[in-house]
Simulated scan of single mutants.
Amino acid sequence: MGASLSPGGGRSGRGRRRARTPVSEINVTPLVDVMLVLLIIFMVTAPLLNAGVPVDLPDSRAQALDQEPQQVNLTLARDGRLYLDQTEIERAALPDRLASIPPGADGKLPLVTLRADKSLDYGEVIAVMGELNRAGFNAISLVTNSSGASGQD
């Protein structure tokens, strides 16, 4: 009438319990894969976020300097336009804008990073550096492409 509970009958309670036990482990491999992809994406895009104005920088074999937490980014584009922290300004307004930048907590003016297109006339770059010096900004960092070994000495 009923089902047989003999070992050969196939209805063993012991075998059924083993097949239904829940897995209490979390598979973290997909999470690690996603995190590594995100890390690579951020590593590639982070340098692009700092440079908002497209400029063809000159090459240099100099070592890269450490980034300072408070710095002013000044960009001279190929067409002669001037940008202060990604905001276009007139050349005549540069002294007033520089005078409005407050000193840091240590009383010093922030570091200025100057990005100038390599096709610009040397005099234009020097004129902007002169305005920076006149405004009291004596720490000026010129931004270039690091080319490693160029083969010329």
Rank of each mutant, 00 (worst) to 15 (best):
L48N: 09
S100C: 07
A99W: 10
I101D: 02
A135S: 03
N50V: 10
R14C: 11
R18A: 10
P47D: 07
E88P: 09
V28W: 15
S147Y: 09
D66K: 06
N50F: 13
D79Q: 04
S12K: 15
T21D: 10
V128D: 00
I126Y: 08
Y122M: 10
A51I: 15
L142E: 06
L39I: 11
N73Q: 15
L65R: 03
A46N: 02
R20A: 12
D33N: 14
Q63L: 11
L120N: 06
A62F: 07
A51L: 14
L76T: 01
V23M: 09
I126E: 14
A139R: 01
L84H: 04
T75M: 00
F137R: 01
R115H: 02
D59T: 11
Q70P: 05
V55K: 00
I140F: 01
R115N: 03
T29P: 12
G148L: 05
E25L: 13
L38E: 15
Q71S: 12
G107A: 04
G13D: 15
L31Q: 14
A19K: 10
I126S: 13
D96M: 08
R97N: 03
P103V: 06
G52Y: 05
G2K: 13
D85M: 02
L36C: 10
L31G: 09
A99I: 07
Q71T: 07
L39S: 12
L82A: 01
G123M: 13
G80F: 05
